[in-house]
Design a protein around this nucleic acid. Structure first.
Lengths: 150, 150
DNA sequence: AGACTTTGTTAGCATAGCTAACTATATTCT
DNA sequence: AGAATATAGTTAGCTATGCTAACAAAGTCT
């Protein structure tokens, strides 16, 4: 008899942590979003481009899966990226599939955006003590572990 | 002579932590977003409603600030929430201002959504050891501290 | 009273999400 | 081989969310 209420009650502290984590993630991204607008490219396009730059060439379906978005949505995101020359569509053996690849320009733009975003976050982290910085580093690793289970 | 490149280079470890944190936040929200769709209410509306439920009644401008969004954008979000009866507009002394308040229905819906979202996150956290859970709890507190400086 | 300020709305544009329906190419089954 | 089926993307059309510009209404100040 360790725990009676098993029906998706979880432990109160866990719910509390989960709630704070969720809220923190929302506010974190909302702040950083401002910096992203400097690139003149929308958030969905930026995120999709990032997958191609860091994860290599993908088909449209794979990219849609990676971004947790439906194919028609990704189709339009990709059209936008192609229109401004940040990615290229290539034909493949399978005539139905396309191979999407970031261009040099796309890679460059992405790195610049990433730099801006991450730098403003890193600047906020600077105000923490060395020990806290170390903790934070360990905890982001822990967080990534959690995410894989989500 | 501790550091030569001072021009927004920051420390490499900080950039790395910042980058991981950013990526983690993106993926965290993307997963949870799926659960939010069950409520049949958009993310911006949900977030604005949340501010009213947890933060109490606000004027449109205050709400826009809290959500880091321009007044016209918030005006429309609020219209949507009002149309489906989740919030109410009240007149104030100052004839220009409105007082926005969540209705009982709005409060109920928000809590249900929050429960779904947070529970799925809490479920993922359950797989961590007790010590890791404790670390994560401290981590979120630290994170909130960082966010206030952003 | 008249000018400025503050608050919110309306109009119009772009991005991003969805489903439904369609096209084109591959694959499978008889 | 040829028909049926499956898979990959696109197009069309809806809603929601972001923005700026322009406006209307209410307060404030001189």
């Amino acid at each position: 008899m360790t725990d009676v209420k098993q029906k998706s009650e979880a432990h109160p502290e866990l719910l509390d942590t989960a709630d704070k984590l969720h809220s923190a993630a929302i506010h974190l991204l909302r702040r950083l979003r401002v910096r992203d607008r400097e690139s003149g490219i929308g958030p969905a396009q930026l995120s999709a481009l990032s997958v191609l730059v860091f994860g290599g060439a993908k088909s449209l379906g794979e990219l849609a899966d990676a971004e947790q978005v439906r194919p028609p949505t990704m189709s339009r995101i990709v059209s936008g990226l192609e229109r401004v020359g940040l990615i290229k569509r290539h034909a493949t053996d399978d005539g139905r599939r396309v191979r999407l690849e970031a261009t040099a320009k796309g890679t460059k733009i992405l790195w610049e955006g990433r730099r801006r975003r991450v730098e403003s976050l890193a600047k906020a982290l600077e105000s923490l003590s060395a020990q806290e910085q170390q903790q934070l580093s360990e905890f982001t690793a822990l967080l990534q572990q959690v995410l894989r289970k989500l």
